[in-house]
Computed example of a mutant assay.
Amino acid sequence: MVTFQSMQIGQFKLNNRLIAAPMAGISDKPFRQLCLENGAALAVSEMLSSNPDVWKTPKSKHRLIHDDCGIKSVQIAGSDPTEMALAARVNVDSGAEIIDINMGCPAKKVNKKLAGSALLQHPKLVESILTEVVNAVEVPVTLKIRTGWDKDNRNCLEIAKIAEACGIKALSIHGRTKACLFNGEAEYDSIRLVKESVSIPIIANGDIINPIKAKAVLDLTGADAIMIGRAAQGKPWIFQEIQHYLDTGELLPKKTLSEIRSFVLPHIEAIHSFYGEEKGYRIARKHVAWYLADYTPDDQFRRSFNALETASAQLEALEVFFENHY
């Protein structure tokens, strides 16, 4: 059993050690709210570019709406210190209570702009960005990184010490280098080294797919909290499962299809409402595929569902699916 230790990010005290990771195209308001309702102490928003030219696009406007329940943590990405500071201020003015800086994304389209994990190659620029952002806002600033650029250039400890000196209030570390993408096993020893070397809270991320792994990562790294990303796709109740295991040492029973229905329908309705009909039904498709992956092995339902082009047709198809499967 893991003894609960509260984690503080600036003035905010989290009610547990479980954080929902920011995931581009996934961690929108409906998804974050669902994670929070199911036991996440904090759900960080998907990445918002620091480039002011894109702030008026529909995608960015959705990400600038900060009226969620819970602590409002917004992630920004970019490489220009002045632009990053401005982006931080804009988000705080829109309601953000924590600013998270992305230096962990390995995507080519982000890295080619010297943003995301590409910044790990340039510690001086990292220092400039962190300094500018921390000085620009009154709210806590956090940072997300990887262990380094590649296996020959692991510098997470150097970056962590820079972050601490610049006033970063918590550091999330995905236990892979940029070059590893999501391949291979996460390097929990690197996270542990950082935890032993700095005083700011450390959040471990990478390959945390179930309650047993969650406890193992907390034990291995000594981290103050863990961050769950891909494992929450189609399974937002994973936070509840992990917390129960940490509290009791017991695993909760697998969700029944009837219980899964109670998650799927409200979530899809929330997506339709948040994005509007046309965009909503498109975004809903991937979430439905994740929720029902174990129940539609032949892929037939997914193909037919993805051909539907109205919100009402999607909800009707889901009702029929659940009626026929339990």
Rank of each mutant, 00 (worst) to 15 (best):
F274R: 08
L220A: 02
H325Y: 02
A43W: 12
E46F: 08
S199K: 07
T3H: 05
S128F: 15
Y295D: 03
V137I: 01
V320A: 08
P266K: 13
V139D: 11
E269Y: 15
V198L: 00
I71R: 11
I200F: 04
N205F: 06
W237E: 04
L292H: 04
L246M: 04
V134Y: 06
G249A: 12
S49N: 14
I129H: 08
L251V: 13
H66W: 05
S49Y: 13
T256N: 03
K213L: 00
A179P: 05
D152S: 07
I98A: 03
D224W: 01
L130N: 13
N324Y: 08
K161H: 00
E323H: 06
G148C: 02
A311Q: 14
K255H: 00
N324A: 03
V54R: 12
D189E: 09
E46S: 07
H62D: 15
E83F: 05
N102C: 05
V90S: 07
Q300D: 11
D93S: 09
L64P: 05
I283F: 04
F301S: 08
C180I: 07
P140S: 06
G280V: 12
L251A: 10
I76T: 13
V137G: 01
A216E: 07
T177H: 02
L218R: 07
Y295F: 09
C35W: 01
A96D: 07
I203Y: 10
M103C: 11
E164T: 05
S94G: 08
E259W: 02
S49E: 15
H122V: 12
A85R: 10
S94I: 09
L42W: 07
H287E: 14
E319M: 03
E323I: 02
L120T: 14
Y245E: 07
D224Q: 01
K144P: 09
A43E: 09
